[in-house]
C-alpha cells in the first residue's frame, strides 16, 4: 500500500479540522463547548490543530450545572488561560431566572437544565463535535457532518458513541 493513506483516526481528525474551520469561516458567533472533561479536552486539541499558530477564533463556552467537581472547574479555567482562550461560563440558574422552561418539569435540576439551555442559545451559535477519550489516547471522534452541508446539532453522548 502506498504511503498516501490515512488510518481511521487521522481520517476523522482531518474531517474534524475541516468542520471547525468551516464553522470559523461561516458563522457569525461560533463557540466551542468546553467543560474540561475528556471529550472537551479532545475537542480543544482539535481546535488547536485547526487554527494554530493563530489564536482560537472562537470562545470556549461552558454551561455550569453546579454539579461539577471543583477540580474540573479549576482545570477548565487553567487550561483556557494556558491556551490564551476566551472562556464564557454561564450557569443554569441564569436560564431558570430568565424563565426558559425545561422540557420535563419532573426531572432533576441537573438533567432538566441542560435541556433548557440547549433550547435557546445553542442552534445559532454552537456546533458540536463529540469525542470520547480513554486512558491510552483518543478512541472515538464523532463529527456531525451531513456530507454536503454541515449539520450543527448537539446530541446526547450515548447516541454518538462510536468505535469500541
Amino acid at each position: 500500500m502506498s504511503s498516501y493513506h490515512l488510518d481511521h483516526l487521522q481520517h476523522l481528525e482531518t474531517e474534524a479540522i475541516h468542520i471547525m474551520r468551516e464553522v470559523a469561516g461561516e458563522f457569525e458567533r461560533p463557540a466551542l463547548l468546553f467543560s474540561g472533561g475528556k471529550d472537551s479536552i479532545c475537542l480543544l486539541r482539535l481546535a488547536e490543530k485547526a487554527f494554530r499558530p493563530s489564536e482560537l477564533p472562537l470562545p470556549l463556552l461552558n454551561v455550569d450545572t453546579g454539579h461539577h467537581f471543583p477540580e474540573l472547574n479549576e482545570f477548565r479555567d487553567a487550561r483556557a488561560a494556558q491556551l490564551g482562550a476566551k472562556l464564557i461560563v454561564r450557569t443554569v440558574e441564569e436560564a431558570i431566572a430568565k424563565g426558559i422552561p425545561s422540557r420535563n418539569s419532573n426531572s432533576t435540576a441537573a438533567s432538566a437544565a441542560p435541556a433548557a439551555m440547549k433550547k435557546r442559545p445553542a442552534p445559532r451559535s454552537v456546533f458540536s463535535v463529540s469525542a470520547t477519550v480513554s486512558a491510552n489516547g483518543i478512541q472515538k471522534i464523532s463529527v456531525l457532518k451531513s456530507g454536503i452541508s454541515i449539520t450543527a446539532v448537539s446530541i446526547p453522548a450515548k447516541t454518538c458513541a462510536c468505535f469500541p
Partner: peptide, 14 residues
C-alpha cells in the same frame, strides 16, 4: 515528521 500512516497496522474506514 510525516503525516502518513503511523500505526503499525492501518485500519481504514468504510
Amino acid at each position: 515528521m510525516s503525516l502518513s500512516t503511523t500505526s503499525p497496522r492501518p485500519v481504514d474506514i468504510l
